[in-house]
Simulated scan of single mutants.
Amino acid sequence: MSSVTAIVVAFDSAHALPECLGALTAGGVPAIVVDNASTDDSTAIAERHGARVIRNARNEGYGRANNAGARAADSEFILVVNPDVVADRGAAAALLDAARRYPDAAFFAPQIVEPSGRVFFQPRSLLASYLTNPTGKLVLPEGEACAPFFSGACFLIRRDLFLTLGGFDENIFLFYEDDDLCRRVADSGSALIYVPQAVVRHGRGLSSKAKPGLVFKSRWHQAWSRAYVSRKYGLPNPAPGMFAVNAAKTLAAGLSFRRSLIERYGGSAAGALAFLRGQGALRQEGLS
């Protein structure tokens, strides 16, 4: 299946890569692993599984690393795969078959099954206010279907369009980069298609091992990125409200000495405040 190359971004993902890359190999899909300065055996494991490895000197973030992988690929399609995603046999072939059958579409999403057996399907999005599903009720399509947004955990996309659109927005370090990409694909006039016969298993949050401070960092970027894409598409700025609510929750958590909650709410408050002050996500990570 030389017409497709998998792009896997690793960051201390040695625990997840063997199963992820093994499934890709079984499906005949070559892989490029872009390593974001892992401190574990991620690169060695990737090489043992026959993947081409791109080593970043530091953590460049999810979107920037995927863009580097896409530029290095030379196939018609790229298959973006999180390291905690395991594709069922035939999943990549099913996505590629759909791409051949729908030449006017550019983005093809598999059925993502979580460890509980629940199927993940995005029922609403910040960037699609016309989707009238305020409670986020999950209703799965009965077959192949068009939709405006899909998860960035795993998808097939035409490489030329991905690069023409600039790939993932490199101002975003983490979070909402998939919503933003889907919005730009749709705005380009290309369809996004759900392909339920292509099944992948997603570990949900198991791409990297847990580390001290990781929750704070994650929540910082989630808050900042939400404010960033809201501004990008002319939506109301959520940063003031996010800061006020999460600052109050941080103070309350501090009174109870619950460190996990302090880290969670404090990260969200700090990310919102950084956006209000004009600080970028890349500067936060020392990349600007």
Rank of each mutant, 00 (worst) to 15 (best):
E144L: 11
F77V: 04
I157V: 14
L127I: 12
G166E: 07
R183E: 01
S129G: 14
V81W: 00
V85P: 01
R201A: 06
G167Y: 00
P103Q: 09
E76S: 10
A93W: 05
G136T: 07
R101Y: 09
A191G: 15
S129C: 12
D88G: 10
R201K: 13
Y102K: 06
A93L: 06
L79W: 00
T132L: 13
R101D: 13
V200L: 05
V113P: 03
K137P: 02
R89H: 10
Q122C: 09
F175C: 02
L79D: 02
F155R: 01
P103C: 09
L79S: 03
G143I: 11
E170P: 09
A93H: 06
S190A: 14
D178M: 03
V185K: 02
T132S: 13
F107P: 02
I193T: 04
L161Q: 06
G90T: 05
K137W: 14
R89F: 08
S129W: 12
V81T: 03
E114W: 08
V199K: 10
F121W: 15
L79M: 12
D179T: 10
R201M: 00
V139T: 14
A186M: 14
C154Q: 08
Q122I: 06
G203V: 08
P110K: 03
A145N: 07
Q197R: 13
H202P: 05
T135Q: 10
L127D: 04
L140K: 06
G117S: 08
R89V: 06
A91F: 04
R184Y: 08
P123K: 05
C154F: 03
Q122A: 07
R100D: 13
F107V: 05
A106R: 01
E170H: 10
L165Y: 00
V185S: 02
F168Y: 15
A147W: 03
G143A: 12
D74A: 15
A105I: 04
R100C: 12
I78G: 01
V200E: 00
S116D: 14
A94V: 04
D160T: 13
L79G: 03
L127Q: 03
R158G: 13
V80W: 01
E142P: 05
D84H: 01
L95F: 07
F155N: 01
L156E: 02
F121A: 09
G136M: 11
S151H: 09
E144N: 15
A109E: 01
V86D: 01
E76K: 15
L79V: 06
D160G: 12
L127H: 07
L131A: 10
S116Q: 07
